[in-house]
Write a protein that binds this DNA or RNA. Structure first.
Lengths: 196, 196
DNA sequence: CTCGCGACCTAACGAACGTTAGGTAGGAGT
DNA sequence: ACTCCTACCTAACGTTCGTTAGGTCGCGAG
């Protein structure tokens, strides 16, 4: 086997990501995933223990990527101001989404389909992740870099706009991930720091 | 029958809206909807011809509301500048979402579950609706009210942020619909008109 | 050569799905 | 009193779902 051939398990998750993104988890059957791999539905169970397990693997990996990217962004801007830190967080967020839009979209939209305990865990990680953005916004308000009357609604506004990228991004689109990140940083800073 | 008692059909659609919003169309069974109404699953078919028909009714009505609200907003700001027109469009959008978050959320997220012909029709109406925002943004760029380098990505950014409200809005939340509209207009204008 | 193993197959399971058929109860209109 | 009509019921249909069982094939290692 070639050294970098993706494992069968991994290829299943990638195909499932794309299908879950397009139709949603509930509307995608195990046989749909198998058909995209030119295989019988039952054959997947040699590599996978359940359908929800595939969803969990996708969501968990995507969550870890977002977390790692945000951690790196914060470390790289340790001494800088809140606006620079937020810009780095946004670039990291855009980078994770564009690197794997399927997984990112599933993470954003389909995690509700998980069982109660896993869903609760994801909700917690999601909240912690959003708090990093929230903190950067609050710090920016405190330092005068941002001019806002309500950081909670600004954070919700911004994060939804950022996450929307997972829905509409296409690798063959007009803009490269870097250009999109540029625009997103620009738009976000305008949103928060507009002249009052 | 009391004059303003909602019809049984309408009550089914309202309950279905809420369930579709929470779990998605595919993950909600006809028997789930029936259980929420304290009725057997098969009993719904006295009022409804199919599950997809319920989805279609919800989506179609929501689409009509968005269209009517946008039309009114444009008429009310016929002589004003692009920024004022966009502000009116945003207020209208927020108003429709907060008036019926279930239907709005289903319109935004679940229309993909419709059959091909209906889905295509909704996609077209959706595009036409978004073009109204796009036009206001382009007009604002032309008149100098907005300072942007790429109206397409700004429109996508903005519309996703606006639509996100359908996901996180709760009637018993901290902010009234009017206050949310104030914030959304403020944030949007900042996003588009930031000092460059 | 043979052994084991990864990858796949067919067949089938019970459960849940959307939907249909046919029937019952009660209230409103004549 | 009789007849609709609305609203609901139980029972069942065919299909699809996620999943299990058991078998086949080919290939690399000993």
């Amino acid at each position: 086997m070639a050294i970098d051939a993706p494992s069968r398990r991994r290829r299943i998750e990638d195909v499932a990501s794309a299908l879950f993104r397009e139709r949603g988890y509930a509307a995608t059957s195990v046989r749909d995933i198998a058909r995209a791999l030119d295989v019988q539905g039952a054959s997947l169970y040699a590599h996978v223990t359940s359908k929800e397990d595939v969803l969990w693997a996708i969501v968990d990996r995507a969550a870890s990527r977002f977390e790692a990217a945000a951690r790196d962004a914060e470390q790289a801007t340790a001494g800088a101001g809140a606006a620079d830190r937020l810009a780095a967080l946004i670039r990291a967020h855009v980078g994770v989404i564009t690197a794997d839009p399927g997984a990112a979209s599933v993470f954003v939209h389909e995690w509700r389909a998980l069982g109660p305990e896993r869903r609760a865990g994801v909700a917690e990680r999601r909240d912690a992740y959003e708090r990093r953005f929230r903190k950067a916004i609050d710090d920016g308000m405190a330092s005068g870099e941002f001019a806002l009357t309500d950081s909670a609604i600004a954070a919700a506004f911004l994060l939804t706009a950022l996450n929307g990228l997972a829905t509409w991004y296409r690798p063959d689109g007009r803009l490269t991930p870097d250009r999109i990140a540029d625009h997103f940083v620009d738009l976000s800073v305008r949103t928060l720091a507009g002249a009052t």
